[in-house]
Design a binder for these strands. Structure first.
Length: 582
DNA sequence: GCCGTTTTCGGCCCGACTGTTTTCAGTCG
């Protein structure tokens, strides 16, 4: 059993323990352990072999034993028994807004409700309001929550959520009482997908009620969920929730930090504050155990901005993109945070399509767009012939495209590179023969078929292609960008090792704003000296802007500026290709 | 169940809002 599956089971066990009414700290321990497992970069089997598993923070003797059992036998007695004590439907009920483990437990025990359908019938029959602790209002909210669960999709893609958030922020900042405001949450952290929108404002006290009114009356709002003095929440018509927080100027850096998250990052910061005898919350620092509440609490450290806040904790400023509690705090403490890539560092990109295959922009439109961005080069990598679904090019098409590229290169400042996104066939062969591959400036090799191969077979397939001497880089290495599908199973450690051995590049895709590798793999790739690129896999000229999302990927991936520039500079690329620059 | 510069016991992040309470529990982020 792999790490992901084990993390899911531990998470589930934590929830089951909550349903059971176990010691809340015990269930939290399972949730923490789940995250810890998810964050292990090494091999789980190896950790068990060396006995180092319990050295991992958050994994002790008991949970360590459960993990060992899961890895070796694929089962866990404790998990199986826990699972048996509750029907599966209870898990679905957790998705309903306002329903947590405690209430679900009560409904299960008093009315025998074990899934959403039964819950809906009971609420409609007015059976819930009779249960102690439940009332008419709760019953109505449950029905609303059920409707929301059924109509709502999952998370939104970053650009979609970003646009709505900007509209809302803009509307609120029109108010003269607003001193500062920002979009916080996962949007500020530039996660690829976004669960809800968080907006933090600093405003004068007297402006607050007015702002809350303005917010809840915005055309984007479907219905209000909560309205308070400092916080209001609403469901948007776009099917995503938006939370608004309003604080004073003094509190603003703390609130912005707090609501930017991630939750795990915050927990770590608070724990750190405690060790300094301080309590940190969204309003400021106070002396630990002073018993004082908001307003009365003596603020012991004043901060003008987030930089001050991190400094007070003995940390270098941590950019939002890195705030996931995945090692960034330690780096901030030791002053080893990487120099991060900025959008202005981007000189070009390699993975772009045109109307020759499945792109929507013509070659000229793509080239002009790249020139408009001031890029030095643009790599054109249309599909090869096997990718029939994507109108893969024939040899004649390729030749025609080469001529058009030559003509454009004669008059454009941005240099177009002749590339191909060559299919990796199920047996690991490439779609073009070697004698044809060598005619391209560079070759992106990608998997576009037979995604459901077992991990070992998929890994063999990719490695075989990657070791072909004409291949420059591996395209979308885990297939996560294929939005409609699950990522395919592949042993990325082996793939990165192979790339390192053969001097190949592992591509990171940023289109449409999903990153193809998590930062721990990026970090490993960097350590192994595998050059990584950030490519939009653009199909339209405006999608070239997706590369900015690649920048956030790079930041998450701890790619230092020099790595990117080495890989991405035209000189570097052509030197790598052995072609030189004219 | 996990953890330890307050280390083998006793604490574990913390506050807002809602709905049901009449002083608070549950949920959420």
């Amino acid at each position: 059993m792999d790490k992901k599956a084990i993390a899911v089971i531990l998470e589930e066990m934590g929830t089951l323990l909550e349903l059971k009414g176990a010691n809340p700290f015990k269930s939290r321990a399972f949730h923490n352990a789940s995250r810890a497992v998810d964050q292990i970069t090494g091999d789980l089997g190896e950790l068990i072999g060396t006995g180092d598993l319990t050295e991992v923070k958050g994994i002790g003797k008991s949970i360590g034993a459960i993990i060992t059992e899961l890895v070796t036998s694929g089962e866990s007695k404790e998990y199986t028994e826990l699972r048996k004590s509750f029907p599966d439907g209870l898990f679905q009920m957790l998705k309903i807004e306002g329903l947590g483990p405690k209430k679900i437990k009560i409904l299960f025990e008093t009315l025998g409700i074990k899934d959403i359908d039964a819950l809906e019938s009971a609420a409609k029959a007015d059976a819930l309001s009779a249960v102690s602790g439940f009332g008419k209002k709760t019953q109505e909210n449950i029905l609303k929550g059920i409707a929301a669960v059924r109509s709502r999709g999952g998370r939104k893609l970053l650009p979609a959520a970003l646009q709505i958030a900007q509209e809302i922020l803009f509307a609120l900042r029109n108010d003269a009482g607003v001193k500062a405001g920002e979009i916080a949450g996962s949007i500020r952290r530039r996660r690829e997908t976004v669960g809800d929108i968080d907006i933090v404002l600093s405003a004068a006290d007297e402006a607050r009620p007015r702002l809350m009114d303005t917010f809840l009356a915005l055309p984007q709002i479907e219905s209000a969920i909560a309205r308070g003095e400092t916080k209001s929440s609403a469901m948007l018509k776009a099917g995503i929730q938006c939370d608004l927080r309003i604080v004073s100027g003094e509190e603003y850096p703390f609130a912005l930090n707090y609501f930017t998250g991630s939750k795990e990052h915050n927990v770590e910061l608070r724990g750190r504050a405690r060790k300094q005898g301080l309590s940190l919350n969204e309003y400021g620092f106070s002396k630990l155990d002073s018993g004082e509440t908001r307003g009365k609490a003596k603020r012991v450290v004043r901060c003008r901005d987030e930089e001050d806040l991190y400094a007070a904790l003995g940390l270098a400023f941590i950019p939002p993109e890195l705030r996931e509690n995945t090692g960034e705090i330690e780096c901030a403490e030791n002053n080893t945070l990487p120099a991060l890539v900025e959008e202005k560092d981007i000189r070009g990109t390699f993975h772009c399509h045109t109307t020759y295959s499945d792109g929507l922009g013509t070659l000229e439109q793509m080239a002009q767009a790249a020139a408009g961005l001031g890029w030095e080069y643009l790599g054109i990598a249309d599909h090869s012939k096997a990718a029939a679904y994507a109108r893969g090019l024939s040899r004649a098409d390729v030749k025609r495209q080469f001529r058009e590229i030559d003509a454009l290169n004669a008059r454009l400042k941005t240099r177009l590179l002749k590339g191909t996104e060559c299919d990796i066939l199920p047996n690991g062969d490439l779609d073009w023969p070697d004698e044809f591959l060598k005619e391209f400036d560079y070759v992106v090799a990608s998997v576009h078929s037979n995604f459901k191969m077992p991990e070992e077979a998929m890994t063999r397939r990719i490695i075989k292609a990657l070791t072909n001497k004409h291949v420059t880089m591996l395209g979308h290495p885990t297939g996560r960008l294929l939005l409609a599908r699950e990522p395919y199973a592949v042993d990325m450690i082996k793939v990165i090792d192979t790339a390192a051995e053969h001097g190949k590049i592992i591509e990171i895709n940023s289109y449409p704003n999903r990153l193809d590798l998590d930062w721990r793999l990026c970090k490993y790739a960097k350590e192994r000296g595998v050059m990584s690129t950030i490519n939009p896999d653009a199909h339209r000229e405006d999608e070239l802007r997706h590369v900015y999302l690649g920048v956030s990927v790079a930041r998450k991936g701890w790619l230092e500026k020099k790595d990117i520039l080495n890989t991405r500079s035209l000189a570097g690329v052509l030197k790598y290709l052995g072609k030189g620059i004219d």
